[in-house]
Nucleic acid binder design. Structure first.
Lengths: 140, 140
DNA sequence: AAGAGTAAGTTACAAAAAGTAACCAAATGA
DNA sequence: TCATTTGGTTACTTTTTGTAACTTACTCTT
């Protein structure tokens, strides 16, 4: 068991201890719901799906597929199921012909999309720096 | 080109337009630095690496590997390179025997870890809800 | 002097995940 | 009768991950 002195520790980071196990070298996903839940919600495709559903209050399968550029039917369908199971989105199917299926965020999903937007805003502000760093690194 | 009325639009979500292309069905990663940069930084393993480096100011390869439970040498090594290239972390090698290599966050990395911690805090607060949802969904 | 140990990786091979593209159902319109 | 439509599914290929053995270079033990 490792101990970290206060001086070694970075400010707010104490919370990691609670989040990712108790710093005893054992924080596998089975023992760590945060890691488990996060790996679903912050997956690349899931993130884009949730963000677009934050933008449009309701979207049908094929519309969503156009916005989440590059996603395949298969993966979109998979992710939608998981996101529904985890409570971020709802699926409403209307038995018309052809069938109409509408996806939208739950309240829970909306609270998540707010957090996600904070992160993407940071990304937008900072992505130029990252691209500049990559350039520089490439030359070394 | 799709138009969204103000009433359809969810609050802060207008920013998506700037972030993910101009709502014209074309936001591939090549045209969208945010998507590109985000896919590296918010990858599951990268996230854990950055979080642990936020907790311990400096970590060596094998220590990092113990904290980021379950990661393989290969992937750890890959992610560290990319995170270094993107400017989140620094690598310092001391030519002792055996070699000693120290990783730590750059200032930029520290500004990112703060954002990341906000997200993980949300996850910690909300993961019980997600697990409960999953249970319920499983029964349907 | 031969062998073991150590840190930080790399490499070859196997398994899992993702991408691709064709296919399906059910009703409607030409 | 045949094409069209939506929301997927399926079989197959390619890419990404995971596994575990190996490497390098020097030091310590025997």
């Amino acid at each position: 068991m490792e101990t970290v002195t206060e001086s070694q520790r970075v400010g707010t980071a104490k919370k990691l201890e609670k989040m990712f196990g108790h710093i005893d070298y054992r924080n596998p996903p089975e023992l760590c719901p945060v890691r488990d839940v996060m790996s679903v919600a912050s997956d690349q495709w899931s993130t884009l799906i949730i963000l677009w559903l934050g933008y449009f209050p309701v979207l049908r399968f094929n519309k969503l597929k156009k916005y989440v550029y590059g996603i395949s039917n298969k993966v979109l369908s998979q992710r939608l199921k998981v996101l529904e199971a985890d409570g971020y989105i709802t699926r409403n199917a209307y038995p018309e012909v052809p069938i109409r299926v509408e996806y939208s965020l739950t309240e829970f999903g909306q609270s998540y999309v707010k957090k996600l937007l904070e992160l993407t805003e940071w990304m937008q502000e900072n992505s130029p720096k990252v691209l500049a760093n990559r350039e520089k690194y490439g030359l070394l």
